[in-house]
């Protein structure tokens, strides 16, 4: 759990207190805190004068607007057809072994979350993953373990 503090207020000042600001506000909260906690959603609802259920309903529509605890680094492994053909399972196993978590889980130190996602637009360089915003492509188990190691050192 994180404390929302003034963040929602600042974001509402920045984007405006109208419904169309909902996505940018939620997106920035996620950029900063990796997921939306209840407090944040309630705050957003208050600032924009919409119901909290609607904020939740909207957020839960979008896979990147997580409403469950997520780690500092969210690893999204593409599971769509090309990546799946080109060794996505090996990539997942490698990451699972390194982080000692399964798909859908977050490490206990809240550093990493591992999830699957649909095509991220790098099929010609499959298999591909996103770590937070950054794409990593043409992965092999060796390559991905190097990448994760780097992140572990960050």
């Amino acid at each position: 759990m994180y404390q929302v503090g003034n963040l929602v207020k600042e974001l509402s000042d920045k984007h405006g207190r109208v419904r169309e600001s909902l996505m940018p506000i939620l997106q920035e909260i996620v950029q900063k805190h990796n997921y939306l906690n209840d407090e944040a959603m309630v705050e957003v609802a208050r600032e924009l004068d919409i119901s909290a259920a609607e904020v939740y309903g909207t957020a839960s529509f979008y896979t990147f607007l997580d409403t469950q605890v997520k780690g500092k680094y969210v690893i999204r492994v593409c599971k769509t057809i090309t990546c799946s053909m080109k060794g996505k399972s090996d990539i997942i196993h490698t990451i699972e072994d390194m982080l000692k978590i399964r798909v859908g889980e977050t490490t206990t130190d809240k550093q990493f979350s591992l999830i699957e996602t649909n095509c991220i637009g790098w099929c010609h360089k499959a298999p591909a993953i996103l770590i937070n915003e950054l794409p990593y492509t043409e992965l092999t188990p060796e390559k991905v373990s190097e990448i994760i190691k780097d992140y572990m050192q960050k």
Partner: peptide, 22 residues
């Protein structure tokens, strides 16, 4: 920005999304 929803490529869904909705 989108936030991970294929359907938002459909034009009217895309508008809804920009308007801050599902």
């Amino acid at each position: 920005m989108g936030s991970g929803a294929y359907i938002c490529g459909e034009e009217s869904a895309l508008f809804e999304s920009i308007e801050g909705k599902r």
